[in-house]
Amino acid sequence: MPIQPDELKKHVVRYEYWLPRCRSRVDALKRRKPKQAKLRYFTLSGGDPLDVIMLAVDKLLPNDGESGFQSVCFFDRHGYNPAETGAKIPGAVPFPGSFIDTMLWEENPEPAEGTSANNDYQALRNTMLMVRQYAPFDVVNFDLEEVLFTSEEEPPGKLLRALKKLFEIQRDGFSTMAAQEFSLMMTVRLPEHGAIHPEALALVRSVLDANIRKFPELHSLFTWNDAPWSRAFELAIPKIILEQLHATGWTISGASGIQEVTRERQNGGPQAEQLYHIIVDVVRRHDTEKEAEAAYRKLMHDLFRSSAHHITDDSIAQEVRMNLKRVHVARDKLSARLPRW
């Protein structure tokens, strides 16, 4: 079957952004522990874990016949049974249920014992305990492909709250370790301007206005009247994520900066979906206010001066196609290891 253009575009993100980021993360781990370096990789899979297989093809994730992809932990992106995905990456640690519901487990009171609701509650609790047990992760691939702000919920919506919880878990997991850093790769859908809760729209506006007020020199780089909605979104999202990171003791590393990528995807509807990817390295927050301020200024300036790389059909390199074929071959080989009578 020929590879679909949308799949190729997604693979550009995997190959040109995620792969180098993971490679440098592995290099950093090897510098610290030359022999024991194992990339602890957390991902949300949609049933076809090509990101994991790509990293294994590039030998960034260990995958031997004995223990398989033991350093990978994953949720099914849609909250379904992840056993199907698990069959494609044997040995990986599966977490059942929905990632967001699991992260937000503590927000709800415990339902009465003996009810279905209580059973679900206990299941989420158990999963949460296990996520904590398996954290921290060197790479968090938050490949959720959900809309960050919906028209129904006020910000911060479920997704942002879940993300914040994950950052807390990361912080707690890293607390006893010397090097406290990880790479965050996030994919969300760009909401249409009209399909966003007014409060969320206000939030986007306020973070951008706050930046411009704080750094007036940025004003020439962005004005509400001239810029398309997508540009506002691209500028606001890193700031919104940064707020969640700051609230949990993290920040974005200035050294590797913020990478933003956008692409379109056909969903059968009249208009293509807009997908937004952000790739950053996350480090513990700077010790002094002055350092933090300087780092923040640099980040915001870099962000306003650059723009997201938009992937089009024409910009797909042959190398990406070749790599995707290799990844497909590896996937099919893994799937074929068990009988399918």
């Binding site: 056993a83 640690v93 599966p94 977490f95 158990n126 047990q133």
Partner: peptide, 19 residues
Amino acid sequence: ATRVEISTFAPTFTRLVVR
């Protein structure tokens, strides 16, 4: 059946699925 799959969600054992 020609195939039965049991998933214990090892190593977390958080769920059990028999299909």
